[in-house]
């Protein structure tokens, strides 16, 4: 997508555009939402076709579906505790929505919806609202003791309480920026190095040969981005689990 005038349009890939033709356009359905839809359908298809054989000795697809189920289930139980069972579908949805968004974004000509801060912040806000609601439901007004650790000197309350409140409120910010920044960084680097390849190839024979280097870098970057895709989805999910653990058990 290198522009003709020897500039690199590294951010053009993040532009929202209408998708699904006239019908999509009339309801303001975007290319980003289309990938969300695909991500959701892929997750549902994986579970549906994975669970369909109902075999005692699973095949490959069933083993994959069971691995996904068991992996997230164990993460919920281990991190949140027994109450984790109730949040398992939510954590599962969150993890696979983010993971599929990250992975789909690596395909050429697709769109990475997790590279939009509005999307990641919406998810993070959902998490923090859920965490707060859960904490208030379980502990009632006692929840607010969370902002003042037991045993801390009373004199320090004016200092500790604002710090704790800021730390609590910065959770959705760090949660959303971490994912957003990771995805943006990866895709900007792809775009920049890919543009280098095109521009160097246009510069002549020597440039064409030298263009192998940014090309090789991009190949290595794909592997790295695959790791990041899994890692960031995992981080998002496990941090949500930790926040839920705090909400359920307070301190």
């Amino acid at each position: 997508m290198a522009a003709e005038a020897h500039t690199i349009d590294a951010l053009g890939q993040f532009k929202l555009a209408p998708a699904l033709g006239g019908i999509g356009g009339s309801v303001n359905f975007t290319n980003s939402n289309l990938m969300m839809l695909v991500a959701g359908l892929l997750v549902l298809a994986l579970l549906y076709y994975g669970a369909r054989p109902r075999a005692v000795v699973p095949g490959r697809l069933q083993a994959l579906a069971e691995l996904c189920y068991d992996g997230i289930y164990n993460m919920c139980i281990e991190t949140i505790g027994d109450e984790g069972k109730r949040f398992f579908p939510f954590i599962f949805t969150l993890f696979f929505f983010v993971l599929m968004g990250n992975l789909l974004g690596l395909l050429p000509f697709s769109f990475t919806f997790t590279s939009h801060i509005s999307v990641t912040f919406a998810l993070a806000a959902l998490v923090i609202v859920l965490v707060t609601v859960v904490a208030l439901r379980i502990h009632g007004m006692h929840f607010f003791s969370y902002f003042f650790p037991a045993g801390a000197p009373k004199l320090l309350a004016p200092l500790i309480i604002p710090v704790e409140i800021i730390s609590y409120l910065s959770r959705p910010v760090s949660l959303s920026i971490r994912l957003f920044a990771n995805m943006v960084a990866g895709h900007v680097m792809f775009e920049v190095f890919a543009s280098f390849v095109v521009m160097m190839a246009a510069a002549g024979a020597v440039g064409t040969v030298a263009a192998i280097f940014p090309m090789a870098l991009n190949v290595a970057l794909v592997g790295f981005e695959l790791l990041v895709a899994f890692l960031q989805a995992y981080v998002f999910a496990i941090l949500t689990c930790i926040y839920l653990h705090d909400a359920v058990h307070l301190h």
Partner: peptide
């Protein structure tokens, strides 16, 4: 498309959660 993007996100996420 900024607002509709998030509205569709919420709809898709909610439906996905419900179905899952």
């Amino acid at each position: 498309l900024f607002v509709s993007h998030i509205v569709w996100l919420v709809i898709i996420f909610a439906v996905l959660y419900r179905l899952l």
